[in-house]
Design a protein around this nucleic acid. Structure first.
Lengths: 215, 215
DNA sequence: CCGGACGTGGCAGCTTGCTGCCACCGCGTT
DNA sequence: AACGCGGTGGCAGCAAGCTGCCACGTCCGG
């Protein structure tokens, strides 16, 4: 089933949101959908209260959703309401929602016209998507952890340093490899360790690994 | 479109496999499908040769696919043929295939009867699934890295050393904390780095983080 | 009892990492 | 020109890490 535009989605599939019993999961690139005031509110009103009702809500976003302070504030509020929010360092669909592991709603990429939604209940499709979501979810990091320990946007230099460290070079070869003096390279490493809040290089590596800063 | 059983899948959707131009990705729990000799061979024959044709093949499995030696050998062979294989530590669908980002094939969970496949070409669905796949893929570890660097069961001592390193202690305090001499502690660290195949402590931390050996 | 294997620890010496200090350079401001 | 500022690099010295060597225990099997 395909619907066009937010209004139609709410009209035709609104009952699915209301009817969520156990679990409501969604993955999206950013907060775009829910920042459209009309759509966001009408859906929000239909969603049962968090937690208490035994409904687990999981939301997975890319770092794009943290771009501006307003979004971060919104997400923190959402978390405070008992919703689990995680950040995935990899691209995500523009919008994927799975409800109670029985229905799913996918949104097409933004185009000029109204957004197009696809609502599916085929168990095969839903289960397949759900499993993939679970995999992406498990690999993602908790929002709080992400905001805390993270250096969300390291510049290219830092990434280069990271790669050199990850390659196992000694400082000397790494510095030569990057066209830096030994002194500067080590300064960079120290800065990196500082932003990663690491006391030792091992710890820095650990954090980098946990945060998936490998690539 | 839904088909039942391997034979029907090959008959009705075989051309999709043959027609793959750029990319063939699949995610599955284990090698079950392709270990069914008939299905595996008929599909294998239809798949273009690896690499040379510009076709990128990516396969994502759970560790279940590494359970027995035969499977591991098979996967190594597959890798040798230019296929990218990664292992995800999280559950995966029983079978998800996306071809050229245009068609996807999902398999339902094994039941008593013949396996049920769903073939879809809806761009919305395919893109959504593809993005999720990409996220799971990026988070997964290369097969070779997985087989190599995996130290699934380090003894308690090693875990203690790992924790000390992760805590950011200097060797001296860590050694005292563990009731070891400095010499022995460093020996342990060296052994750990050896099993992690790390050239530097940073690398060791990186691996540990990637492999989720934090806890 | 002896010999060997194994794990541990001390010592020494080397390499590597880390950092404070100073000097230099390029840049934009005053 | 003079100045401050930020990034860089050399130097020096210290701290941390790494490892070969030897010595001492323990625990075997001979």
């Amino acid at each position: 089933m395909t619907v066009r535009g937010d209004a139609e989605l709410v009209a035709r599939a609104g009952h699915l949101f209301t009817g969520a019993q156990h679990e409501f999961v969604c993955a999206a690139r950013d907060l775009d959908t829910w920042s459209r005031p009309d759509a966001r509110q009408s859906v929000a009103r239909r969603l049962p209260r968090h937690g208490a009702s035994g409904l687990a809500v999981k939301k997975l976003f890319t770092p794009v959703a943290l771009a501006d302070e307003a979004s971060r504030a919104h997400l923190r509020e959402v978390v405070a309401n008992g919703v689990e929010v995680r950040i995935s360092s990899t691209p995500l669909p523009h919008e994927t929602i799975v409800i109670d592991r029985r229905v799913m709603i996918l949104a097409e990429r933004d185009g000029p016209g109204p957004r197009e939604y696809t609502v599916t209940t085929s168990p095969t499709l839903v289960n397949g998507v759900y499993s993939l979501f679970a995999a992406a979810w498990d690999a993602a990091t908790e929002l709080t952890a992400y905001l805390r320990g993270d250096a969300p946007h390291l510049d290219d230099d830092s990434r280069a340093v990271l790669r050199a460290l990850g390659a196992g070079y000694t400082d000397e070869t790494a510095a030569r490899h990057l066209g830096l003096s030994l002194r500067t390279y080590r300064r960079r490493v120290a800065e990196l360790m500082d932003t990663l809040e690491a006391d030792s290089r091992f710890q820095a590596g650990l954090r980098a690994g946990e945060l998936g800063l490998t690539g």
